[in-house]
Nucleic acid binder design. Structure first.
Length: 556
RNA sequence: GCGCCCGUAGCUCAGCUGGAUAGAGCGUCGGACUACGAAUCCGAAGGCCACAGGUUCGAAUCCUGUCGGGCGCGCCA
């Protein structure tokens, strides 16, 4: 709140003096309490463009700021320190006013309002439906879902989508694998293909299909075998198999509190001729061309290393061609911005996809690709590789069973998505009691308990004047005041892990406050004010946890 | 070889797009419950921010190089 006014005054001042607009005015909270409640190094930065000594600038800035009614209403004094920092000390009334405002905002504290909200399509997880989701996918699910919540709460409009890669060679392999396990359950001597899916879960799927259809496909599989990928039998097991996998994925993601507005299947893009149509169009515009009996997309003018094949010389379209048609579909739906979250193993694919969308949209910034780093699965400190094909993995379900949804989500999202993450399941299980999520949830439960114990006649209210006179109350209020800025910044930087860090800071500030300040049984006016502070804290904690998909319990 | 991500306390990681004496959790050591929940709080120890240059009033942060790790570099998905 203060920051906005300071920025306005500084902005007017800079414009009036005719200086080139310098860097943005950052208001920070100094670590050292001697440096005031808030501080800005702005005058040091302005010194370059203004060609003046920082301290002289600071003198002028201080005079301007104190002359402004809004700023002077909140700030008692402004010190000039060190090489030219401005240090602000708030008036005592600023704290009561702040709590009063937040109390009135109720559950909307921190919600952003954008001048230019974007219609964003957020695509994430998007895997081949040929096996269970593992902890690597879980990370992208947790990250993507938190980003969804965060972008929405910060003022954008977000639609989420899961692209189902249910077409192509991997899925044929999967179909043959399920068919083989089915045949084996009837004593037939058919092997899962070498390149196929060896995991135990395939047997479970085959058994489920057997429940449904009995021996209907046994004769055909005995006569035809598995070699013909397009045979009705293999096709049946591919489709029925992936439907079952997909149902399980959906259920598991829902349990993980991750839902999508739309599940978009790849197959119709091929069967309805839309991949072909997209390619034809690009050939017409000259963005695609024939060479070496293949069709290529000219991506090099857009920063790619080489042009990319859309149709192979055997006339089958590539995965890239389908992705192109899919993104054309997205563009046709009128979103202002597209975000895809991909795993680090796909980052080599980024330049061509960016190029493709730029070709179709004529906007290089239309598509934003977020690359999430991998989860490093450890066992007793040793690295272990995961493989869907070999069936070697720790699944999302196992992770949830081991440590619970709250701990799992918090753990997966509290670190930057840009950082590889070590996960030792046995360690995680042992340490789940130490998961910082409980620290945050405990703060929420503690407040709930205070509210329960509060005498019925006491209402949360903040009167005027100096009600919050301890450093514990003031530190907590300042922390709560940061929430709106934090939401915006975390959203803009696609960084939900900041919310996790912030939630811990609020919880810490509350626990210290709680230790040092009585809520119940103080002077009635103080009690009412502290109760109000507690309520605001509770709402902010609950909201921060909600942005991470974590529950905020009333007791624990 | 080339590209992307990364290297910060014993361990796991933050560090707000360049600011004041680099932070948190866990672990270790030592304290605090006869009033609102001790899943908490207070204190201590622990650092050449991989290394070397550069940019400037100022660098963990930006640039270059070196070393080390992960992931990519298909007419696979």
């Amino acid at each position: 709140m203060l920051a906005a006014h300071v920025q306005r005054v500084i902005g007017e001042w800079v414009a009036e003096r005719g200086w080139e607009a310098g860097p943005p005015v950052v208001i920070e909270r100094p670590a050292e309490s001697d440096h005031g409640d808030y501080a800005t190094p702005f005058c040091l930065q302005l010194a370059k463009v203004a060609r003046m000594a920082p301290r002289a600038l600071a003198e002028e800035a201080r005079a301007r700021l104190l002359a402004d009614a809004e700023v002077a209403g909140m700030v008692g004094e402004i010190d000039i320190a060190g090489p030219g920092f401005l240090n602000f000390r708030l008036r005592p009334e600023a704290f009561t006013r702040s709590v009063s405002v937040m109390l009135e905002q109720a559950d909307e504290v921190g919600r952003g309002a954008r001048e230019h909200p974007l219609d964003i399509l957020l695509e994430y997880v998007s895997v081949n439906p040929n096996g269970p989701l593992h902890v690597g996918h879980a990370r992208y699910a947790a990250y993507g879902n938190s980003l969804d919540r965060l972008l929405s709460f910060s003022g954008h409009r977000v639609t989420t989508e899961f692209y189902i890669n249910d077409y192509g060679r991997q899925m044929e392999m999967f179909g043959r694998s399920v068919a083989a396990r089915y045949a084996q359950s009837f004593g037939l001597d058919l092997e899962v293909p070498e390149e196929g899916y060896q995991g135990e879960y395939v047997k479970d799927i085959a058994a489920e299909v057997r429940e449904e259809v009995g021996d209907r496909w046994v004769a055909e599989l005995r006569d035809q075998g598995l070699d013909d990928a397009g045979s009705p039998a293999v096709d049946f097991f591919r489709v029925r198999g992936y439907q079952l996998v997909l149902e399980q994925m959906r259920a598991e993601l829902e349990r993980f509190r991750v839902t999508f507005d739309r599940w978009f299947s790849e197959t119709p893009l091929h069967t309805e001729g839309r991949v072909q149509a997209a390619i034809d169009h690009l050939l017409e515009t000259g963005d695609a061309f024939h060479a070496d009996e293949a069709v290529w997309l000219r991506t090099t003018p857009y920063g790619d290393d080489k042009d990319r094949v859309l149709v192979r010389s055997n006339e089958r379209p590539t995965y890239f061609a389908a992705d192109l048609a899919y993104h054309q579909d997205k563009l046709g739906r009128g979103y202002g911005h597209l975000i895809n979250i991909w795993g680090a193993d796909h980052h080599g694919y980024v330049p061509r996809m960016k190029a493709a969308v730029e070709i179709m949209s004529h906007d290089p910034d239309m598509l934003e690709l977020i690359i999430g780093q991998m989860v490093n699965l450890l066992e007793a400190g040793e690295s272990r590789q995961m493989s869907t094909r070999r069936g070697e993995m720790v699944t999302l379900g196992e992770l949830i069973d081991a440590i619970g949804v709250d701990a799992a989500r918090f753990f997966l999202v509290m670190r930057s998505h840009d950082q590889t993450l070590d996960l030792d399941l046995s360690l995680a299980r042992r340490q789940s009691q130490e998961n910082p999520v409980y620290y945050v949830q405990y703060a929420h439960a503690r407040i709930a308990s205070i509210v329960r114990n509060m005498p019925a006649e006491l209402e949360p209210a903040v009167g005027a004047g100096e009600l919050f006179d301890t450093v514990y109350e003031r530190d907590l209020i300042k922390k709560l005041d940061e929430f709106a800025d934090l939401v915006r910044e975390a959203a803009d930087r696609r960084a939900p892990h900041r919310v996790a860090g912030y939630a811990q800071e609020v919880a810490a500030a509350f626990h210290v406050f709680y230790k040092n300040c009585r809520v119940i049984g103080s002077d009635p006016e103080v009690s009412a004010a502290r109760l109000a502070l507690c309520l605001v804290t509770k709402r902010v904690v609950a909201r921060a946890l909600d942005l991470l998909g974590v529950s905020a319990p009333e007791s624990m």
